[in-house]
Design a protein around this nucleic acid. Structure first.
Lengths: 238, 238
DNA sequence: GTCTATATAACGATAGAC
DNA sequence: GTCTATCGTTATATAGAC
């Protein structure tokens, strides 16, 4: 089988995609809302809070999670919790906005090859590896997006669609360069997005079948590429 | 473009997949739990309840929906509601189990052709058309499956995977008959399921782009079939 | 900076009038 | 069969001790 345009090892060594780095950025960006002065303490406790929110939300949904649940899971009292946010809703938006920023940044940082065939492979790998290294935060975003205030609801669609548009743009470049032959590039980009989302929405399935993220990356690339090259054309890679 | 193995019109005329028919079955199956004697009244009010549950759950999740919300949305008082179920949890399980039964029944009733190539197309169409005719109940099941009691959690996986296994079986039949040439039929069935789920999970996207369910069915069939036939083989349909 | 204790509102669920 | 009124519980959020 062909080599991947980007390996998981390479991706991880280049990106510090830990939840801790997200929480560090979260604390920095919300200094006005967080009443804890010592930065290290704020980051460490925020990490416990975010971990607990994601875990509890997976079980009963963000709305179903009470702050008593959160207090118990983090070993922080109710009073202590309110030094890290002013309301349950604010906590959600802090996490959501920080994750959104991080995801879009990293997706844009990869997929830099000039050849659209390679760039498509890089983008597929980057998306899969990112969701692999932050397994639960991706499905948290997908499942809980409905909890956003109406003002922020528009941003969800933007976030959902922005990565899809990114893939669409690569496909368009490939068509322009006559590397790809695609009937409907919009439907194609949507289908690709659906395959990438499946990786984090059905995590239990893949892990129980012992499918690695690189195996799945190869599968998705092959599955999509079978639709990119006309059989009459000579640009199908050998 | 090729004709579809099953049109939406044919599917609709053969199946009474309305929410009302689900509620009728729901009332019949839960006669012991529902204290309303007149069947017609029970069905009509249960329909209002189920509609409201799906709608409110979409906005704030089932756990986030209060029975006061439900009371307001249905124009039934709190006391009246409790004549249709004994607890919020029981209400959820009644809806979930009834929907599950109906979905599996209909999926099994279609896709009857002996040629696996045709049967695959029929199954894809049936799944898409069913989720098209009951748009919100499918995403309700997907998003709220986590609310099931641990005892019923196992059934979710069964339901999720049973349709996937159904597609996998069709692929296996095709391989056995040397109609299909597939490297990993399990991954392939999972990918197909992901494409079908996208139809009801991203409904707003398709409707704003004015993509019809038959257009999408053709796209999915083409997308998958590009991966089923080896280019060396002579069994690729003309 | 974290705790306990508590205010206030909303929750699921029930009883009894009509 | 549906209503109003209300139960006991739990929710979010806050105040003040340490």
């Amino acid at each position: 089988m062909n080599e991947l345009a980007l390996t998981y090892r390479d991706f991880i060594s280049r990106e510090a995609t830990s939840l801790e780095s997200i929480c560090r950025a979260l604390v920095m960006h919300n200094r006005d809302k967080i009443q804890i002065k010592k930065e290290d303490r704020a980051i460490q406790n925020m990490l416990r809070i975010v971990r607990a929110v994601i875990s509890l939300s997976q079980k009963k949904g963000f709305q179903g999670m009470s702050l008593r649940d959160l207090s118990q899971e983090t070993d922080l009292s109710m009073g202590a919790l309110y030094n890290y946010f002013n309301s349950k809703e604010e906590l959600f938006e802090m996490i959501y906005n920080e994750g959104k920023t991080m995801i879009l940044q990293i997706l844009e940082a990869h997929a830099t090859a000039s050849d659209p065939r390679i760039r498509l492979q890089q983008a597929i790998c980057a998306h899969l590896y990112l969701s692999e290294s932050l397994p639960r935060i991706f499905s948290f975003f997908f499942m809980e997006a409905k909890n956003l205030s109406p003002k922020n609801q528009k941003n969800v669609i933007t976030m959902e669609q922005s990565s899809e548009r990114y893939f669409e743009q690569i496909l368009l470049d490939g068509i322009k360069q006559q590397s790809f032959y695609i009937e409907d590039h919009t439907l194609m980009a949507g289908a690709l997005k659906a395959l990438l989302q499946d990786w984090y929405l059905k995590r239990y399935k893949f892990s129980s079948r012992k499918v690695s993220v690189e195996q799945y990356a190869k599968f998705v690339i092959g599955f999509v590429e079978a639709n990119l090259y006309s059989s009459q054309s000579d640009s199908q890679p050998g």
